[in-house]
Simulated assay, not measured.
Amino acid sequence: MTTDSPGIQSGAVFHTTRWTRVCLAKVDSEDGRRALAELCDAYYEPVVAFFRCELRNADAAREMSHAFFAQMLGGGAIRTAERERGRFRSYLLGAARHFLFNQHAAGSRQKRGGGAAILAIDDEEAREVADARQVSPDAEFDRQWALTVLARALDALKAECTSEGRTMVFERVKPWLMGDADHGDQAGLAAELGLSPSALRMSVHRLKQRFRHLVKGEIAGTLDDPAMVDEEMRSLFAALGG
């Protein structure tokens, strides 16, 4: 996680987030452009997921995503950010929809003029992708967004544990953090890590707390209002079906 994301503590004052910097600076500031580039780099995969569901073609989705981000980072479009109620997630999805609509419109015009369509989709691959994932493009965008938030927070937590010489502890308790394991043989794991069972439980509890703290920090970096963090957390877990 970048240093731009604020720490989230009870009663803490939120520092200016990456998204706030973008909204304030628009495209007229190097600081705003850098913050926007960081956000686009971090949240590239949700856009790919959205385009893949729309186009039913993985290669076309990657190409479309590259074109989309190139246009966004080129400047200008970000001036409409205030219409999206302070969420980078909402802005990014709306911008991707608008970009795709324009590409379809351009393709239709080119067809009418006798040229080749811009969006050519392989029918066999389209059927394969459609059968594999029957979800709406918006829902897949939100799901991938949520997974990206968690992955970035988990990477930040791993970096902290590594700096403290606790990489093995992190790796062994990570399933508990992600909800991928029941509590199983905690006594065996505690012995493996050289901890008492109670010390292991405390370690897992503290890492869960820190993980949630980092998730909130990552989310806060994509909002311009601290009061929206809890609401966005609920949206994140709803997208994951939790």
Rank of each mutant, 00 (worst) to 15 (best):
D4T: 05
G7Q: 10
Q9R: 08
G11F: 04
A12N: 07
F14P: 00
L24V: 12
L36H: 11
L39T: 00
L39V: 11
V48E: 02
F50K: 07
C53L: 13
L55I: 01
N57M: 04
A58Y: 06
A58F: 06
A61N: 03
R62I: 11
E63P: 02
E63A: 06
H66K: 03
A67T: 07
F68L: 13
F68V: 06
Q71G: 09
I78Y: 11
R79I: 00
A81I: 04
R85A: 13
F88V: 06
Y91A: 05
A95H: 01
R97T: 06
F99K: 15
L100K: 08
L100F: 05
S108I: 00
G113E: 01
I118L: 09
I118N: 04
I118D: 12
I121M: 11
D122H: 04
E128I: 09
A132P: 04
A132D: 12
Q134A: 12
A139L: 09
E140L: 14
D142A: 15
R143H: 14
A146R: 03
V149Q: 15
A156L: 12
K158D: 12
A159Y: 06
E160A: 12
T162K: 13
T162H: 15
T162Y: 03
G165M: 14
G165P: 01
R166W: 12
M168I: 15
V169Y: 03
V173T: 13
K174W: 10
W176C: 10
G184E: 13
G184I: 06
G188T: 00
S196Q: 10
P197Q: 08
S198V: 07
S198G: 02
R206T: 02
K208M: 13
R210N: 02
R210T: 06
K216G: 14
A220L: 09
G221A: 13
T222R: 15
L223T: 08
A227R: 14
V229C: 09
E231T: 07
E232Y: 09
M233L: 15
M233F: 12
S235M: 03
A238S: 11
A238D: 01
A239W: 12
G241M: 00
